[in-house]
Nucleic acid binder design. Structure first.
Length: 1156
RNA sequence: GGGCGAUUAGCUCAAUUGGCCAGAGCGCCUGCCUUACACGCAGGAGGUCACAGGUUCAAGUCCUGUAUCGCCCACCA
């Protein structure tokens, strides 16, 4: 866009079509240099401060349209509040995203250099990841800037930077000190490729075809039993006495290889009771069910009875054997294992008996805890069969031939083969199972028992709570809570935090309600290292005793300090550790270290050091000199994310930033991280500061691709917002995003490739289908649905062009070789069209606004169109504020669009064209022209302010020019405006609109004029009057409205291209005129009569009218309606009926004239 | 299996606490290059508000059930 000063005149002209690129570049530079994004604490009170922390994007890759939506909405809120005079901070930054980033970088190194992370080593890998982070952080920030995000860039943070590391260590230490961080053995989701635990939400389930293998475990004959018979069981033991004792117990499994770690087989403790209860439940359900469901339930009931018939006796027998303490011999490993009773064994599933592998199945683990079973790990971290160590510490040689086999493939094969050759494989059935896979490596997850660190979110046992009265944990504000999760639940339930839309509060509360411990350790190299130093010692009785009592008092912590038997100078050690503990610089903990809970073994002593990088360096050095080593694990990435709302403001220091900007005003995010992130921020915010981290949580829709799937980096269906900016401009992107943001609907976004050769578009969905076809024709087997990332090259759909183009997923060589196609979507056309409209409306204004502002205005004396547009403006301002207050972005856009496009452009500007070009030599003409200019300037001014949060670049650009053309844009005597400076800092129109401009009467009157205009246009069109012809028209109005209508009639004349307009009170149909009745008006267009057509039209209208009248009369004739409905509703209906009847009279008059 | 949401015009979506004739954009049809804008202007066609019951003077809106789709959570030896 160029600003051209026309040589021959002083008319300012700008290009006809809006070009976003130059505008956006110009305006960005303007904002950057102005410092408008900066946030500076100035002591403004909380109600005049507005803070948003950005959900820090992962540095795994570039942003896609989902992020564009998220950040557009935030920027709208930020700009809106900034203009309203709030002290406004938008805190930017990025997230290191632990496992995700490490996985991406590891994969790339594997692909490019063929090396694993172990080949590189910890330091080198971390260096590579930092490099990657630098690259993508740069890219992400440039994307955000291109979108117009007005973050305070000087505050940009990274979840792994030094300041945040300090906050992480402090939080870790505080939690550790209070015993809320502990070490435990848990079954975790193990990724055997990345060799780390992964969180539940990083696991996805996929249906896999598998089998049920039925194995026979030999029963050890009763004379060999070791356990004494339980006297209590003798009675029931007789129940199955009739049958000979089974030689084997039959079990079914989908995972044969886990049998190496079996330590029991479980059977239900009360099979009769179970069957009876099930039967009762099913029959009750069946009799309550609808006819359609009943057959199915009946079938279930039948199956249950059959099952009972065939297996109950044996299950009872086994149950009794279990009560006797009978044992089984686990084949292949020759381990003696227990037969136990546990409700987990479901008599209707499998064989009714279930093998228990506590170290490799979450449910079995629970069973193992209940029955104090040995837990035998049979898996190595890299997914092979481990050397198996029995509970007594001896190596199991019987299974030595399995060691080193891959667990799930080779191990499984060999187990099956070996059992079969021993005659212990009963049968195999096909079965489909939902198998957990790692999100990162795509490999099946192995449940794996390992040492992990946890944050306790559940309620803390409270021996002293009674004395305090309200729970054990004291928060910094002095209040108490029973646990972290409970504190976060309370914050939402008591309304300190509001969730928009409110239904999402439920998922937050449900999840927190489970109060599950949070596993925070990850076996990764990329992340915050745990500030814990540990050493293992041989167990002694004293240590175990202390371990049980850990964390209860300072006295006991001191006692711990002397539990380091190998230390050379115990006195020095005791003094040091004791002092540091008292000073709050270290905390000690101790726990058993080995896998087998019941086995004698080592004890680990651990110290958490508060500031290992700074003040407490000396402590670390001392500990390390005594043989303590830092824990190799890093923290779950969400640990640092949970601190984001205050770690970015300098916590744990009491900074001015923290004082001004905490808590945040609103957190904007999409629903999938409500639990991972939102809930944890609330917990940590309350724990660290005693205050909630934000007042509102706003959950926005998700962007889906053309197939309805959510956009994600891993699927490769993400569209780079910069591509959209390239084709449509940033403002169009933002406009469209805001316009599509409704409360309930996700946003579907079909994508097309832009051919770099010919510019034609190729549909992504079609390209995917083509790719699938061509792979099939090449004989490739497709084991999964193809994703956009699988299309690395696509053929242009334009037959004339037909060239191949590379997509963003092509490798570098391909990209170098052929041009890369950008992606786009015609969804953004609405935004582009709107921007162009605004551009041109402004262009029109600039051409007409030059000259001095007019004198004092008196609204009452202005022409109706002026009063109307001003009243509409005031109304629009109020509605916009209301919409944004409820996060109704789509509604906010609609309000502004209707005002600007339908109101200002289509009516006001069209009407004032005549006034602006009119004769201003006479006083009346001059006044009309001056007032029109002033009001147009005012409306353009307000339009730009209102639109600025949504489409900042374009409005800022136009604002600058408006300031040149019409620097004074208030309404003299009515509204004063400050128009100096940049729009980004201009004052936003007030919450209450402009009450002095409100005028409900003119809104109604003008609607009537619009009806008359539309009626006349309609008549013209229906009677085939050429558009250019000026017609002569007559309008018949009721006597009492004659004068006012004459004063307003110019509106009609100018909008319908009328030459001569008669406004009369009484009058018959003029000769050769076509007519129409609109409300209380009859309107005629002269010299065009086609009586037959007119007659048909009139009859049709009368018919429709009659229908409505009948309906209304019936309604008003209904006594109940009149009695029950609200009076204003009844009144409105009466009024409406009167109008309809009046119109009917008019039409009938017209009809009879036509028939004369 | 548990929870949440959706189903309205050919498409994408609106419709406050139930209350005028269910609206908009895109697309389609007709006519317009009217001196801001053809990325535009003026008109038009197009709807059994998923289905079946119920409550009410009044139902797209509330209740019950059915069907289909989506998402979240938990999971089957």
């Amino acid at each position: 866009m160029r600003l051209v000063q026309h040589p021959m005149s002083d008319t300012v002209t700008i290009d006809k079509t809006y070009d976003p690129r130059t505008v956006e570049t110009d305006v960005s530079a303007l904002w950057e240099s102005s410092g408008a994004f900066r946030a500076i604490p100035d002591g403004r009170p909380p109600e005049r401060t507005f803070t948003i922390v950005i959900p820090p994007p992962n540095v795994t890759g570039a942003l896609h349209l989902g992020h564009a939506l998220n950040n557009t909405l935030q920027d709208i809120l930020i700009r809106y509040h900034r203009m309203r005079g709030f002290n406004t901070l938008w805190q930017p930054g990025t997230d290191h995203a632990g496992i995700a980033t490490q996985a991406v970088v590891e994969r790339r190194i594997r692909e490019q250099e063929g090396k694993s992370r172990h080949d590189l080593g910890r330091d080198e890998l971390v260096r590579c990841i930092w490099q990657w982070k630098d690259e993508y952080e740069r890219r992400i920030i440039s994307q955000l800037k291109l979108m117009g995000c007005s973050c305070d860039w000087e505050r940009n943070r990274f979840t792994l930077d030094e300041g945040l590391a300090r906050a992480v260590r402090e939080m870790f230490f505080r939690l550790f000190h209070e015993g809320l961080i502990f070490r435990g053995k848990r079954l975790v989701n193990w990724d055997t490729q990345l060799q780390t635990a992964v969180a539940d939400d990083e696991v996805y389930h996929e249906t896999v075809k598998g089998h049920f293998w039925y194995f026979k475990y030999p029963v050890i004959p009763s004379e060999l039993r070791t356990a004494p018979l339980d006297a209590k069981c003798q009675g029931s033991a007789r129940a199955g006495a009739g049958n000979p004792e089974p030689k084997h117990v039959l079990i079914a499994t989908t995972r044969p290889e886990t049998m190496l770690g079996d330590t029991a087989v479980a059977v239900h403790p009360d099979p009769e009771g179970f069957f009876a209860a099930e039967e009762e439940r099913l029959s009750a359900e069946s009799s309550a069910a609808s006819g359609k469901e009943r057959p199915e339930l009946q079938m279930k009931l039948e199956a249950l009875r059959t099952r009972k018939e065939s297996s109950l006796a044996e299950l009872i027998q086994l149950r009794d054997m279990a009560r006797e303490g009978r044992k089984l011999r686990l084949p292949l490993v020759e381990r003696v294992i227990s037969l136990i009773c546990d409700e987990w064994a479901d008599p209707t599933k499998g064989t009714g008996c279930v093998k228990i592998t506590p170290a490799h199945d979450p449910n079995d683990y629970e069973v193992g805890l209940r029955h104090n079973l040995p837990m035998i790990n049979v898996l190595t971290p890299d997914g092979r069969v481990a050397r198996i160590v029995e509970p007594d510490g001896t190596t199991n040689y019987a299974s030595a031939s399995y060691e080193g086999l891959t667990f799930a493939v080779e191990g499984r094969k060999k187990v099956i083969a070996d059992l079969e050759s021993r005659g212990l494989l009963d049968r195999v059935e096909d079965y489909e199972i939902e198998l957990g896979h790692s999100d990162r490596s795509k490999l099946p997850i192995e449940p794996f028992l390992s040492d992990q660190w946890f944050v306790k979110t559940g309620d803390v046992p409270e021996p002293r709570a009674k004395a305090r009265g309200s729970g054990q944990i004291q928060l910094p504000d002095g209040s108490h809570t029973s646990g972290l999760a409970q504190a976060a639940i309370d914050a939402v339930q008591d309304g300190r935090i509001s969730v928009f839309p409110s239904r999402y509060a439920k998922s937050y509360l449900d999840w927190l309600g489970e109060k599950r411990d949070w596993c925070i350790s990850r076996q990764l190299w990329w992340g915050h290292r745990l500030s814990v130093w540990s050493q293992r010692f041989a167990e002694n009785g004293r240590a175990i005793q202390i371990a049980r009592e850990i964390g209860k008092s300072e006295h006991q912590l001191k006692a711990l300090a002397i539990q380091a038997p190998q230390l050379d100078n115990m006195q020095e050690w005791n003094e040091n550790i004791g002092r540091w503990t008292r000073e709050g610089r270290i905390v000690a903990t101790i726990q058993k270290h080995d896998f087998q809970l019941r086995q004698a073994g080592d004890v680990a002593q651990s110290f958490s050091v508060r500031e290992p990088e700074e003040r407490d360096r000396e402590i670390v050095e001392y500990l390390e000199s005594k043989g303590f080593v830092q824990d190799p694990d890093v923290l779950d990435t969400w640990f640092s994310s949970a601190l984001w709302p205050f770690s970015t403001l300098g916590w744990p220091e009491e900074t001015p930033d923290l004082k001004q900007y905490y808590p945040g005003s609103v957190l904007c995010t999409s629903r999938d991280i409500i639990t991972n992130w939102v809930a944890r921020m609330v917990m940590f915010g309350l724990y660290a500061l005693g205050r909630i981290p934000f007042d509102h949580v706003y959950i926005h829709p998700k962007i889906l691709d053309g197939r309805g799937e959510t956009m994600s980096k891993s699927k490769g269906n993400g569209v780079d917002p910069v591509d959209i900016i390239h084709t449509h401009g940033a403002d169009a992107l933002r406009y469209t995003m805001a316009d599509m943001t409704t409360e309930t609907q996700d946003i579907r976004m079909p994508v097309e490739y832009v051919c770099p050769h010919c510019g034609e578009l190729t549909d992504q969905g079609a390209a995917l289908k083509n790719e699938e076809q061509s792979r099939k024709s090449r004989g490739q087997k497709l084991d999964r649905k193809l994703q956009p990332a699988d299309c690395t090259r696509v053929k242009c759909a334009n037959k004339v062009c037909g060239k191949e183009l590379a997509t963003q997923w092509a490798d570098q060589a391909t990209k170098d070789q052929m041009a890369v196609a950008r992606e786009t979507s015609d969804k953004f056309d609405v935004g582009r069209n709107f921007c162009n409209k605004l551009w041109n409306a402004a262009r029109f204004a600039f051409l007409n606004l030059k000259g001095a502002p007019c004198d004092r205005l008196d609204v009452a004396t202005l022409p109706p169109e002026d009063r109307w547009i001003l009243a509409r403006l005031s109304q629009t301002i109020r509605r916009y504020h209301e919409a944004l207050a409820g996060y109704q972005f789509s509604a906010s856009v609609r309000e502004l669009r209707e005002f600007f496009w339908d109101g200002l452009c289509d009516w006001y500007i069209e009407l004032t064209k005549a006034r602006l070009t009119g004769d201003d030599r006479n006083p009346q003409g001059a006044w009309l022209r001056a007032t029109a200019k002033q009001i147009l300037a005012f409306c353009m001014d307000q339009t730009l302010r209102l639109w600025h949060p949504t489409i900042p670049f374009l409005t800022e650009r136009l604002w600058r020019q408006l300031n040149e053309v019409a620097p004074q844009r208030g309404l003299p005597g009515i509204v004063d405006l400050n128009c100096d400076g940049l729009l980004i800092r201009a004052e936003f129109p007030p919450l209450e609109g402009y009450p002095s401009l409100d005028d409900p009467a003119i809104l109604t009157t003008f609607e009537g004029l619009q009806d008359a205009v539309r009626g006349l246009r309609d008549l013209r069109a229906n009677t085939n009057v050429p558009p250019k012809d000026k017609v002569r028209a007559t309008i018949v109005v009721p006597e009492q409205h004659l004068d006012s209508f004459r004063a307003e009639a110019h509106v009609v004349r100018h909008m319908v291209n009328i030459g001569e307009l008669d406004v009369v009170a009484e009058g018959k149909r003029p000769r050769n005129a076509a007519g129409l009745a609109i409300k209380s008006l009859r309107i005629f267009v002269h010299d065009v009569s086609d009586d037959q057509a007119d007659l048909a039209r009139t009859l049709k209208s009368l018919e429709a009218l009659q229908q409505q009248i009948t309906g209304k009369e019936a309604k008003l004739g209904n006594e109940k309606f009149v009695a029950n409905a609200k009076p204003e509703v009844v009144e409105a209906e009466r009024k409406r009926l009167a109008e309809l009847l009046a119109q009917q009279t008019l039409l009938q008059a017209h009809l009879s004239e036509l028939r004369e």
